[in-house]
Design a protein around this nucleic acid. Structure first.
Length: 606
RNA sequence: GCCUCGGUAGCUCAGUUGGAUAGAGCAACUGCCUUCUAAGCAGUAGGCCAUGGGUUCGAAUCCCGUCCGGGGUACCA
């Protein structure tokens, strides 16, 4: 799935490919493979729809590029009904496709409810996608937002490509990090709860995590003052001792510790639920590290028994990966506790037990590339045939104008705050423009939220997932230009036109008159529409929401030019008006279907 | 040090089987609302595609070197 496969092109392209092969045989007596036929969309400045690059055939024709292109052009025009004209510029053969062909494309598109999507069938392959994967010691921030949006969108894209998808989340609910929050809460919390304080649970627990760190630093400073080396001070600080002790008690299943752990984790889950709901993401199955790490431990010990792994004198367990060109990797600490990798081995095993997974995808930041490379190898060594097939969907980090986000330095952009702020800006903008008059308060609020989240999601998803991206809070809240709002706005405009048409009693006739003249701009739009199914499958092959985002932007830009230059309802000729209505409706549909793949809703009005 | 990803307009980003004169948005400047929503449309300006070689009819794209930046690199997750 990951490797580049040839896109399934629309039929006309296949026909042209075949005919070029045939032409080369007939004209020059040479057999060529159709992969030699380079077909591309004709550049705007030339007349034509599709262009054949003829350079590869010069060796066969033994003629000039122009002559060769001209030979092929004549042959194609005579043998392909859809080609109405052609012209030659240097080695480029530009083909003009007849307007009736484009009208047929539009006809197909307007009639299909989920144009461009593939159906999921009982035979479809099952893909499990892990995303989000938060720690339970602090609220979600901008980095998580990119993760969640990419994960959710990827799932939508896979579904649209005919895959069954299980969305999963592994919650890192155990370990020293949550113990730090617990220690701090016990020391300084005075029994504070989300209810008593009015603070959202994940934020409350996060506040105690920060509190812990502050006190811990103070303690280190004091100890260093007394002459201890820094490393030793870090180990001996009372807070850290307390956190370690808490972890030991947790692993020993001390009832009080477990009870506190459950309580505080539940506060966090309640908080996360709110954030996930606001963000519009969800999961089919949630795994908890506190459960899976034990399975991982079992597997590692089995590996040790079977001689796949080895043990050092201090009791720690290791994997030797030098045969794979990597280093040695620790799997169990000398005190027998498990590490991140142990947990992931256990989780993977559980998942493949629970589901008949054909493909497993981990949506995790690129700082963990090495981790997943190792995980894949270890599972393979342990005899799991799925090991080699794991896919790490590795995405870049989100940077802020003043550098990286550091929770300890207070430079994180909190997910809840960010969404609330964007909704507020959307409300102000919308009220200034006065576009929602007549809407109830409820409807208006929904629209503000839709606009705010659309802007945020599009801003993040339009960039290539692999790359690091910069998030400038001021720019990101812009609603003009290449933004989600621009796309939503165009959808609202289209809906407005369609409403007005209905008001005027103009009904759309879906039997397009084949003889109708199609304007250049209209044909450009149909061409853009015709690309959508290819774009969906490309996004699925490349695991890239950005492909969808950039396509929808192009389409919308094209539509707005058309909208500006041509009147739809003001058109006198009923046939032309009908064509334009169908065009508008289809563009609206593609916008909606495309944005759905990004997890973005589009409004009827804005 | 080693591994890995990246470097395209002042800023944020497109540009994927190598193809024609490298594209958008933001910011700046200029026009367009008695006409279907101006969150729009049109225009001006802005580029040695980090850099040096190579491959070929043709390179932002492929290969090698160099510089700069991100991330990882044996008991954090």
């Amino acid at each position: 799935m990951r490797h580049k496969t040839k896109q399934v092109k629309m039929s006309i392209e296949l026909i042209i490919r075949d005919k070029v092969v045939e032409a080369v045989e007939k004209l020059y007596g040479q057999t060529v493979d159709s992969s030699l036929v380079q077909l591309q969309n004709t550049r705007k400045e030339f007349e034509g729809d599709l262009t054949v690059v003829v350079f590869p055939f010069l060796r066969m024709s033994k003629k000039s590029p122009e002559q060769t292109a001209s030979d092929l052009g004549k042959f194609l025009q005579d043998h392909v009904a859809e080609i109405s004209r052609f012209n030659v510029v240097k080695g480029f053969l530009n083909l003009v496709i007849s307007s009736s062909y484009w009208l047929n494309v539009l006809n197909d598109a307007v009639r299909q409810e989920t144009y461009g999507y593939k159906q999921v069938t009982p035979e479809s392959k099952l893909v499990m996608v892990e995303y989000s994967s938060p720690n339970t010691n602090k609220p979600l921030h901008l980095g998580h937002i990119r993760n969640n949006l990419l994960g959710f969108s990827l799932c939508e894209i896979l579904k649209a490509n005919g895959y069954k998808v299980v969305k999963t989340n592994i919650v890192n609910d155990r370990g020293i990090h949550i113990c730090k929050s617990m220690v701090a809460w016990l020391k300084w919390g005075n029994g504070q709860t989300p209810e008593s304080s009015g603070i959202k649970g994940d934020h409350l627990v996060g506040d105690y995590y920060v509190k812990f760190d502050q006190e811990y630093r103070k303690e280190i400073a004091e100890l260093v003052e007394k002459g201890l080396p820094k490393e030793e001070a870090e180990q001996q600080a009372p807070s850290m001792q307390a956190a370690r002790e808490m972890l030991r008690k947790w692993e020993a299943k001390d009832p009080e510790t477990i009870e506190l752990w459950r309580t505080m984790n539940q506060w966090v889950y309640d908080g996360f639920d709110v954030t996930y709901r606001e963000l519009g993401v969800d999961f089919d199955k949630i795994y908890y590290e506190s459960e899976t790490y034990l399975y991982g431990k079992e597997e590692v010990l089995r590996g040790l028994r079977e001689g796949i792994f080895y043990q050092k004198d201090d009791g720690s367990v290791w994997a030797d990966l030098t045969g794979e060109g990597l280093d040695h990797k620790i799997l169990l600490r000398s005190d027998g506790t498990s590490v991140y990798m142990t947990q992931d081995i256990g989780t993977a095993k559980e998942r493949f037990n629970d589901y008949k997974i054909d493909k497993m995808i981990y949506v995790v930041g690129n700082e963990q590339n090495y981790h997943f490379q190792v995980l894949s190898i270890l599972l393979d060594k342990l005899g799991f045939e799925f090991g080699k097939g794991l896919h790490h969907f590795s995405y870049g980090m989100v940077e802020l104008p003043n550098g990286k986000m550091k929770s300890r330095e207070g430079t994180v952009v909190d997910a809840d705050d960010l969404m609330a702020e964007m909704v507020e800006v959307a409300r102000k903008t919308s009220e200034e423009l006065g576009k929602l008059e007549g809407y109830t308060e409820e409807q208006a609020r929904e629209t503000y939220k839709m606009i705010a989240l659309g802007a945020l999601k599009y801003f993040i998803l339009k960039v290539d997932p692999k790359k690091n991206m910069l998030f400038n809070p001021e720019e990101s809240i812009d609603f003009n230009g290449n933004t989600g709002s621009f796309i939503q706005y165009t959808h609202a405009r289209i809906k407005s036109v369609l409403r007005k048409a209905a008001d005027k009693g103009i009904s759309v006739d879906y039997n397009l008159d084949q003889g109708i003249a199609v304007e250049g701009k209209e044909q450009e739009l149909i061409k853009k529409i015709s690309l959508f199914p290819d774009v969906v499958s490309e996004a699925g092959e490349m695991y890239s929401p950005a492909v969808i985002a950039n396509y929808v932007y192009d389409l919308v830009k094209e539509f707005n030019q058309f909208y500006h230059d041509f009147s739809i309802l003001g058109e006198e000729d009923p046939g032309k008006r009908n064509l334009r209505l169908i065009l508008a409706e289809t563009v609206g549909k593609v916008i909606k279907l495309g944005m759905k793949l990004l997890g973005v809703d589009v409004p009827e009005r804005m």
